[in-house]
Amino acid sequence: MIRFENLCKSYKTPAGRHYLFRQVNLEIPSGKSIALLGRNGAGKSTLLRLIGGMDRPDCGRIHSDKTISWPVGLSTGFQGSMSGRENVKFVARLYAKPHELAAKVGFVEEFAELGRYFDMPLKSYSSGMRSRLGFGLSMAFDFDYYLLDEITSVGDAVFRQKSAALIQQRRQHSQFIFVSHNIQQLRQFCDVALLLDSQGLRYFDDIDLGIAQYRAENHV
């Protein structure tokens, strides 16, 4: 379960304050994977960051009794001058017990299939390779919710297939919150939808209803 209580979030811009959420009250029941729908700049990534505890709301709060991953995006938390292995080790030290370290690193190394690049500095990676590392890294740990920010859309076909299989397998005990512009993928993995636009944040307990509404409003 994830519950938004009186959630507000705004940004100060040179043109005045820009409001993303005003007094949002919502509850998303347990056991549902969530698609975040909305156009670029609607605040999807901000919402993920709020859920992931990386950013704080102006008022209200987000309450959950589940463990939630960090927002897994293309660039979050990686250090460019360190190798993939060193970056993975760092996160594994944060989230795993010392004796599990080797197993976690092994999992990511095997899943990301980066070969020799795994020991090269991260700044030499393409965005596809970054996404493989980032996604694989988050999957090495057990969370109730994984927050994925367009991470699955950049990899090649082989990787997409592999990650889809892993997501399906994980969904037996974990849930996902997806930001993606790939509607097909959202329909495949998600049960419910959150639509984010100028009317605020709306919840649909059926993903197809949410997608239909999103399409109707944006004429796509």
């Binding site: 990386m54 939630i68 960090w70 938390g77 990686f78 250090q79 944060l94 989230y95």
Partner: peptide, 9 residues
Amino acid sequence: QGLLSYRPV
């Protein structure tokens, strides 16, 4: 900033 995305930090 990137490191603070990990909740334990």
